[in-house]
Amino acid sequence: MINILGSLFILVGALFCFLGALGLMRMPDVYNRIQTGTKAVTLGVLFTLLGVGFLHPDWWAKLIAIGGFLLMTNPVGSSVIARALYKAGVQPWRAEGDR
């Protein structure tokens, strides 16, 4: 039973990773790609860690460490990329109505 629950959490995590990658493909410019990529993939990793925690309950300490590191570093990484592009002069895409 607990195996099925853990596997379901891993599946949900995989689906969020897929959504992030899909957003990476669909979005029109690089800032929107960073947004969808970071958010969805971060929650995907967290769900995967939760699911693996259900499958192997004695690994929880290291799983929390990985989750904490990712939660601290992932937004910082995307912010730094966005900042570098903004400083380098990449203009964001604008919708048709408000040029």
Partner: peptide, 17 residues
């Protein structure tokens, strides 16, 4: 060099390079 002007796919900003 970084192709700044190509990074926005549909809309080009001013070229800073």
């Amino acid at each position: 060099h970084i192709e700044v002007q190509e990074a926005g796919l549909d809309e080009r900003g001013d070229d800073p390079c």
